[in-house]
């Protein structure tokens, strides 16, 4: 298991380094996804399977997709050409190798790591849920209000401002 940890750590460091040094935003996002996936493998072998799933679903799923949406929105009109230029086949080689390494590691970890045998040494999702909704109930409510504030703020910032000079003047 320690070897898996070291390999996943190396993949995380390498892909993060590549992510912050890329010139192209889409390439950097692909390496960012690789970094998140390798940290997810680390979570899994640390005994936090629920957190590993959340990392993949929310970070690599939702947040990175938001980034991609914004990058596409900032280049309206030339998506086809940009997609061809951004996603050259050559560009996929390094991320594919890293992803294959992670997949092999993950399958090996799933084969060898049996949570029911080491139940006293890991924290399973059931305990996390119980703690979340008893000890940290106030925190959950505050997080809900934070998300509501984020929704309202994003809606307010994202809508196009209508320019009205005066209510009797014609709209431009």
């Amino acid at each position: 298991m320690n070897t898996i940890f070291y390999i996943a750590a190396a993949v995380a460091l390498l892909s993060t380094l590549l992510a912050i040094t890329r010139r192209n935003a889409i390439h950097a996002l692909i390496y960012l996804i690789m970094s998140l996936l390798s940290i997810s493998v680390i979570f899994y072998i640390l005994g936090a399977p629920f957190i590993a799933a959340l990392e993949v679903i929310i970070y690599a799923g939702a947040i990175v997709v938001l980034f991609i949406f914004v990058i596409m929105m900032l280049n309206i009109g030339l998506e086809e050409e940009l997609e061809h230029r951004w996603l050259k086949p050559r560009m996929w080689i390094v991320p594919s190798i890293l992803a294959t390494i992670l997949l092999v590691e993950f399958i090996y970890a799933m084969k060898t790591l049996h949570y029911e045998k080491i139940e006293s040494q890991v924290v399973l999702p059931r305990q996390v849920g119980l703690s979340l909704f008893s000890t940290y109930l106030l925190g959950v409510e505050i997080a809900g209000m934070l998300l509501l504030a984020a929704i309202i703020g994003t809606y307010h910032l994202g809508k196009q401002k209508k320019k009205v000079l005066h209510r009797f003047l014609p709209k431009r």
């Binding site: 936090a48 938001l66 980034f67 924290v123 996390v128 940290y136 925190g139 984020a150 703020g153 994003t154």
Partner: peptide, 21 residues
């Protein structure tokens, strides 16, 4: 630790949505 990670996830999601707007 895992509970705090869930809170950090909520913070990151709201931060990134407002930041991208």
């Amino acid at each position: 630790g895992q509970v705090m990670f869930i809170f950090i996830l909520a913070i990151a999601a709201s931060e990134v949505s407002v930041g991208l707007a």
